[in-house]
Design a protein around this nucleic acid. Structure first.
Length: 441
RNA sequence: GGCGCGUUCGUCUAGUGGUUAGGACACAGCCCUCUCAAGGCUGGUGCACGGGUUCGACUCCCGUACGCGCUGCCA
């Protein structure tokens, strides 16, 4: 008997990778990596035969983005293929025959059904513990259909056959399958083999306590890809849903999680997906990015946004992006955050206008405008010095100078460091923007 | 309805009979500061309920409530 650890993720090709499925895949992957076992990807496409290639692509893309590489499966190959159920029909025929010969199958209106032995089945779950299911009552536990009259296969059967044939040692899946497990075990036993080990992990719920459905924003992994989340952050966050290192740490390197991960540490209660916390954690990762990585990701995000950066020299774009580093949590925030660099059509924030474009501030803005125009080196340090000197000469703090200037040059109350942003914008643009602002109040 | 699983701050969690019930996100306030973030500090909110067991229960047992899952010729 081989003791090799083999786990699998077996999604059906729905056209996207569900965030809950991604976590199931992640836990399987962690378990395999921790034990030096194999992580298998199997596509359960018995129900829909069309568009499989397209629908599975979304699954591959999601898993790859999260860095969950499979050792065996579509594209990766392996000794237990094919890894698409639609291509395994002969195998299922063979096992159906086996069960028929052993007298476990009966026909019912053209459908093939498995006759339950009607006994107790104890599921010894690695997460949930020992659970005793009493299957003796056919009214509450009817015999299950394993093949439809049209010849297509039912999940319960092919899932078991594939786990058996692929020598899966541990079935780690969502808790929604817990009640199905005794039925699966019956088939293993009818075939005369020991079932694999089972571990049912709790489900991920929505903010309102309901199951995350495809319609929910954020239920699909592609949402996070599009929004510019960092895969390491999403992966880290997913690990924290139902698992904990138990030492109060939250941001953990994936290698360390692999080292620490154990099914024993997996919780038993379902978890609510907290997008705020993911947002925060992503920020933690984003702030750690080196300048090059930040620039590359930022540039990609800007290019796919409304912001038009084509007419600006690379050095300008690069400098502009650099001022945003450490200020955003998710790259999706960037276009809004730094849009002012790439347009001259600023819209002033109304609250900012009310607060800063006041009669009292007008001469101040004019004063700093003139001081700035006298500068030869338009660099952040000189700009800062100018602000402080001007403030001092006016006998005020630097704030009443900074705020109107920021609003005049960016249209907003919040943004990158003013001194740096002015340097990037350049003297000409800065003076023009201040002049324009001055003419509005 | 039946069967199964679950229940610690709003959320994610630590906690395995004796703790001022800890951390994180979010929230509020303060500090820092050119804004916003970041960072630092402070604060409030929690063991679903009722019975046991015990000298003593968040921790063990039973029940109730609530939530979720399964109960398909979906996966």
């Amino acid at each position: 008997m081989s003791s090799e650890i083999r786990v699998r993720f077996a999604p059906s090709p729905t056209g996207y990778l569900h965030i809950g499925g991604a976590r199931t895949a992640l836990f399987n992957w962690l378990f395999a990596r921790h034990h030096g076992g194999k992580f298998v990807l199997r596509i359960e496409d018995t129900d829909r035969t069309r568009n499989t290639e397209e629908a599975t692509a979304a699954i591959y893309e999601g898993l790859e983005w999260l860095g969950l590489h499979w050792d065996e499966g579509p594209r990766a190959g392996g000794d237990f293929g094919p890894y698409l159920q639609s291509e395994r029909t002969p195998l299922y025929e063979r096992y159906l025959k086996k069960l028929q010969d052993a007298g476990h199958i009966f026909e019912d209106q053209g459908a093939m059904r498995f006759r339950s032995p009607r006994e107790h089945v104890v599921v010894d779950d690695l997460v949930c513990g020992k659970i005793d299911f009493d299957l003796s009552n056919p009214d509450t536990h009817p015999d299950m259909t394993i093949r439809r009259p049209d010849g297509s296969w039912i999940f319960h059967f092919v899932n078991v056959i594939d786990d058996l044939e692929m020598k899966i040692s541990h079935v780690i899946r969502g808790e929604d399958h817990l009640s199905n497990t005794p039925k699966h075990i019956e088939i293993f036993r009818a075939l005369g083999v020991e079932p694999p080990n089972y571990a049912h992990i709790p489900l991920i719920l929505n903010r309102d306590g309901t199951k995350m459905s495809k319609r929910d924003e954020g239920a699909r992994v592609e949402y996070y890809i599009k929004k510019g989340y960092l895969p390491a952050a999403v992966r880290n966050y997913l690990c924290l849903l139902g698992w904990s290192p138990k030492d109060n740490r939250e941001k953990l390197d994936i290698d360390e999680i692999v080292r620490l991960f154990d099914l024993k540490n997996v919780g038993r209660s379902s978890a609510t997906f907290d997008s705020d916390k993911l947002h925060w954690l992503n920020g933690e990762y984003a702030r750690e990015l080196n300048d090059t990585s930040f620039y590359d990701l930022a540039l990609a995000r800007l290019k796919s946004s409304e912001v038009k950066i084509d007419n600006y020299p690379e050095s300008y774009v690069r400098a502009a992006i650099q001022t945003c580093k450490g200020k955003i949590n998710v790259f999706d925030e960037l276009p809004t955050y730094c849009g002012f660099y790439f347009t001259d059509e600023l819209e002033y924030n109304p609250e900012g206008v009310a607060k800063n474009f006041t009669v009292e501030n007008k001469p101040r803005l004019k004063a700093i405008r003139d001081a700035l125009s006298a500068l030869e080196k338009f660099h952040a340090t000189e700009i800062e010095t100018t602000f402080k000197a001007t403030a001092a000469s006016l006998g005020i703090k630097v704030g009443p100078l900074v705020h109107p200037t920021r609003l005049a040059t960016t249209g907003s109350n919040a943004g990158p460091s003013l001194y740096h942003l002015l340097e990037v914008l350049g003297k000409e643009k800065v003076l023009a923007r201040i002049d324009r602002a001055l003419s509005t109040f």
